[in-house]
Design a binder for these strands. Structure first.
Length: 224
DNA sequence: TTTTGTGCTGTGGCAATACA
DNA sequence: TGTATTGCCACAGCACAAAA
């Protein structure tokens, strides 16, 4: 069970800490635990609840109406919204939810919905990369655990690897050769994999060496 | 149709306190 | 010691209903 500060919730939901406190006071939206010095701490259930509320609120639901709904009704309305009006912000929040809950099904559903609607490339440009930027900020602030970050990164890697593997574009007559790698100490390969996908799709040759490659090992490859 | 009053909501600012 | 968090009050903007 993770523990979050009010600032963490602000980062996840985009709702200002000030507003969260007012919601708590006026509407009893959340009942966070308190430290011995009265600082609020929130758990995963609180975070899920406030993420759902923030989605409804952003879609025009008044906070005073939202609090009259049961947890089940809130979830149903969020599901309806995500099916009917899958805007990028909501999709990013769905992915955040999938990451926090480590729920593969939510991830696949959101991802596939976006691919169906916008295509694979635009899903990465307008959903996955903005999502990863958000993850980066949450990572820096310590709001998410390494396990959560790795969980979602690996799901994204899988999607890219499958997509790369399934490309059957014919090689161009003037196809170029690309050597793809990340230098020593660099492990985050999602951008590199997406580049691999694009280059292969455009009909060029690729040699993919992955992450953390000592630079001196590349020279023989280039000569060969 | 326009004006007015009321309630709802989010935000700014402040002082006190906790934390790193 | 600087920053973050708390609780509180005040206020502006907006929506909506009632009255003129």
């Amino acid at each position: 069970m993770s523990s979050y500060s009010i600032k963490d919730l602000e980062g996840f939901t985009g709702i200002k800490a000030h507003t969260l406190r007012i919601w708590e006071k006026r509407y009893h939206v959340l009942k966070p635990q308190r430290t011995s010095t009265n600082i609020r701490t929130y758990d995963d259930e609180d975070l899920k609840h406030i993420l759902n509320i923030s989605i409804l609120n952003r879609h025009g639901y008044r906070i005073s109406d939202i609090i009259k709904l049961s947890e089940k009704e809130i979830c149903e309305k969020v599901m309806q919204l995500s099916q009917r009006c899958a805007d990028t912000h909501s999709q990013i929040e769905n992915l955040l939810m999938a990451m926090i809950e480590m729920d593969e099904e939510i991830f696949h559903e959101s991802f596939n919905q976006s691919v169906f609607k916008s295509g694979f490339e635009d899903t990465f440009r307008y959903l996955i990369f903005p999502f990863l930027e958000r993850v980066g900020l949450l990572w820096q602030s310590g709001s998410i655990t390494p396990a959560q970050e790795h969980f979602v990164s690996n799901l994204i890697r899988q999607k890219l690897i499958v997509a790369i593997d399934s490309i059957i574009s014919p090689r161009k007559p003037d196809a170029l050769h690309f050597v793809l790698f990340l230098p020593e100490g660099e492990w985050h390969e999602i951008g590199l994999l997406f580049t691999h996908y694009l280059i292969k799709k455009w009909g060029h040759y690729t040699l993919y060496f992955g992450t953390n490659l000592p630079i001196e090992t590349i020279q023989p490859v280039l000569e060969k």
